[in-house]
Design a protein around this nucleic acid. Structure first.
Lengths: 232, 232
DNA sequence: ACGTCCATGTCGTGT
DNA sequence: ACACGACGTGGACGT
């Protein structure tokens, strides 16, 4: 009805609306939803998502924060700074539920790539006798190498760590190796592709390029003391 | 042409539950959510997702269909065939809302990569005078090349079409070119990287590898008749 | 079932 | 702001 201007504070409330509506999105692409019953989920972060009763957790349409919802009668317009627009036209409200959920303590994860890398950094001799860590996230012009290590003979080795080893990871390591091997101060650099699971194509491509593949056992690694402690 | 997924009828209801709960996921990784108020969204497709009041449309935890929800008192266990488990322990139910949304007519999209590829296939002379289409999705052992075309001199050209041109796309085209150029019947094959927007690094890498970069204007292409019609 | 690739990917991190 | 890489990526499509 009336235009809203100035700073908008979101109610600390999740808002669930069941409504018969149609939706149009114009942004990175254009998309249209014909009139039908849907769930509109408006979160305290300002996000709006339009759900049907399928597609798992993915909405049919959505707008991510930061964005702004303007309710003008039965036309709800959600817009972001980039000019993307989500226009929801309400034909009929079916039901609505609001509630303040309070603070979210946060999700705790274990077993992501960072943990693998951390464990392998502590246990580089998993890769071979006499191996030692130079550093994690070794910086290069095209991004950091997961682990830079020395083998038993003092040769340099670049290690790419993945949970799941696929083609992309091999390409990534290949780019690093190309770059590192152009530097006469550090060349020659060998490559190691280390992952919990390595897809056959990735293994083939890697070995075709002279990259050694190592399969990691996260549970075993988690149970093993760091290299330093094992010296005693 | 249009991304229409036909209407699907589900017999059940969307179920919205506000509850104080804790959640544990054990599967591809392990994750834990301490006790707090959350939105549980159970869809007719069987999916379960646990939302806080932020994170845009992404749930904190979820299980995708096909999966099965077992409610045993205040302990809800969702499980899939791979043995991944989501255990939701309910401390208190706050509110609940159920409704049969009925059939979803389906989302219609316009402007995805497939449309770009389709338009460029009709207008290959955008790439150069005398260019002609051999075929879309030209099959190779490592996947289909978006467009295979002939240039004005009868030389073969492999085209990779992207909405946004990034490094991955260049790597992808490079793999195709390597493979195609090993086949004496078709070699030499030139590469063209065509996208609505090409990132500077992708452009640099592509041109370093002798791949030509072409920026596409989707709106303009949509307004242009196919090559065949323009011959008259 | 596996491989490949697109996605309004989203999200964090470092520059 | 941009670039880069991880993600329980998810999902579609082809073999």
């Amino acid at each position: 009805m009336t235009g809203v201007s100035g700073p908008v504070t979101y109610p600390r409330c999740v808002r669930l609306v069941l409504a018969r509506c149609k939706v149009d999105y114009v942004g990175r692409l254009t998309a249209h939803l014909p009139m039908a019953n849907r769930l509109l989920l408006i979160k305290a972060d300002g996000s709006v998502s339009v759900h049907s009763d399928d597609r798992a957790y993915k909405p049919l349409n959505w707008m991510s924060p930061p964005c702004w919802l303007l309710e003008d009668g039965d036309v709800w317009t959600v817009q972001n700074k980039a000019g993307e627009r989500l226009v929801i036209t309400i034909d009929a409200l079916i039901d609505e539920l609001n509630h303040d959920l309070g603070a979210e303590p946060g999700l705790v994860k274990d077993g992501v790539e960072a943990h693998l890398q951390e464990l392998l950094a502590e246990q580089v001799n998993t890769l071979g006798a006499g191996y030692s860590l130079v550093r994690r996230e070794y910086p290069t012009a095209i991004g950091p190498v997961d682990l830079l290590v020395k083998d038993g003979d003092g040769g340099t080795v670049a290690v790419e760590v993945k949970r799941r080893g696929e083609l992309d990871g091999v390409e990534q390591l290949t780019r690093y190796l190309e770059l590192l091997n152009r530097d006469p101060l550090i060349a020659p650099v060998q490559g190691v592709f280390a992952a919990q699971q390595i897809k056959p194509q990735a293994k083939t491509l890697a070995e075709d390029r002279g990259i050694r593949c190592v399969t990691l056992d996260y549970d075993a690694m988690r149970g093993i003391e760091p290299d330093e402690f094992r010296l005693f």
